[in-house]
């Protein structure tokens, strides 16, 4: 067993599962968004705003944001541990990535629920 403390799950299996489930959610969200835009060729701000005013859409979006955060973290953590060998730099890059994801997530929630 290889131990690791910087990934959250500490289990390759849960990482692997999260990666796949979040990918499905992101795919569904993307398909929905692309479809919505295609069906509303003359989309204006009130219609767009109205979509996001509905609770189900906010929940769906929040789910997508959380999936994106998890997916990005696991993916980037993997890339970082593959390619960055010096421990100090690797740890620093991990902190930066983690902070960025956290900021974007909070900001996303604020945009979604703050309006």
């Amino acid at each position: 067993m290889v131990t690791n403390i910087t990934n959250f799950g500490r289990s390759g299996l849960s990482d692997w599962l999260i990666q796949r489930v979040s990918a499905i959610i992101l795919a569904l969200y993307t398909i929905f968004m692309v479809g919505y835009l295609l069906f509303h060729p003359a989309l204006d701000y009130p219609t767009w705003n109205g979509l996001f005013a509905q609770t189900w859409m906010r929940i769906f979006s929040l789910l997508a944001f959380l999936s994106l955060a998890a997916h990005a973290w696991i993916g980037l953590w993997t890339v970082i541990t593959d390619y960055i060998k010096p421990t100090g730099i690797r740890f620093a890059v991990q902190i930066v990535v983690m902070l960025a994801i956290f900021v974007f997530l909070v900001w996303g929630v604020q945009v979604l629920w703050g309006a």
Binding site: M1, V2, T3, N4, N7, G9, R10, S11, G12, L13, D15, W16, T78, T81, D82
Partner: peptide, 12 residues
């Protein structure tokens, strides 16, 4: 299996 569950051993 318990020995292989971590993010590296198999999942790389």
């Amino acid at each position: 299996l318990a020995d292989l569950e971590d993010p590296f051993s198999v999942f790389r």
